[in-house]
Design a binder for these strands. Structure first.
Lengths: 145, 145
DNA sequence: CCTTGAGTTGAACCTCGCTTTAACTTGCAG
DNA sequence: CTGCAAGTTAAAGCGAGGTTCAACTCAAGG
């Protein structure tokens, strides 16, 4: 079992395009050694980083935030299972929150499908928890901008 | 109660920036009448359209798809509650599917947090359902590109 | 009338997450 | 040594979803 992977190999094994891997490197998400002829050679551990990146993206985390998270890994030693678990646990919370919001949207939607309102001021999608009751007539969307 | 809304009023009531409302109009998502002086005047019904757009965006639907959906509303009459309910029901399914995928990701993640693997070939996140068993050594990510 | 805030336009610009292109260079098998 | 796949770079391009800007015009109150 060879130690270093070429970019083609890493791309094949991670399922991420070579161009994307180079892009990740520019952003400081992954790193590579260079051969005498300036070609990239990846440590097998980079495979794990790439995995982390793709899963985090699915959770809806930006590459910039992912970089910050990866930067918090110890630079001096190979990250342990605990190191990875710490990060994973952090975005598990994000995922849970996203699921909660989507579920709530679905439930509110159910209420609205019945009445077809979508703009009536009593609608949950418009006025969750009647938070705007004191803010003048008419409701406002309380969705993220 | 006045009939027509200015762009400023629609922006305030919908929570959507004026620039975004003009953008939506360019894309054919909403429409406006014009005064003699060429200013936009919105029917109150547009408020409902804007609501639909923002909620659909939260469900992860592109503006282009939203336009197609809105185009399917009857042009000859004001859309009824049933018209809106028909559209809403369609993306409720999308929402459910998204929730299902996120939930599965979370569950797979739980399994992985325990082992910290993120790159071991038996990991569910890498090799769901062992689908790659016959495709040579090592696992590949089966995440959307 | 005059001022002022609100509205108008097209074009340019922005961020994100990449991909594509052009013009080379390396690595390696034969 | 040749030939060719695989690698290199910087820069440009893309698509989505807007925002910002300059240079006006409109509407309404005093």
């Amino acid at each position: 079992m060879q130690e270093a992977l070429t970019i083609g190999q890493l791309a094949a094994r991670s399922g991420v395009a070579q161009s994307a891997l180079r892009y990740y490197e520019r952003l400081g998400l992954i790193r590579a050694d260079r051969t005498g002829g300036n070609q990239r050679r990846y440590h097998r551990g980079e495979l794990r980083r790439v995995a982390f990146i793709r899963i985090a993206q699915q959770v809806g985390i930006s590459l910039d935030e992912i970089r910050t998270a990866l930067d918090s890994l110890p630079a001096s030693r190979t990250p342990t299972a605990e190191d990875w678990a710490r990060l994973s646990t952090a975005w598990r919370k994000r995922l849970e929150e996203k699921i909660r919001l989507m579920t709530q949207l679905r439930d509110d939607l159910d209420g609205c499908i019945g009445c077809g309102c979508l703009s009536l001021r009593r609608c949950a999608l418009y006025n969750p928890g009647d938070e705007l009751a004191g803010e003048g007539p008419g409701a406002r969307l309380i969705l993220p901008r």
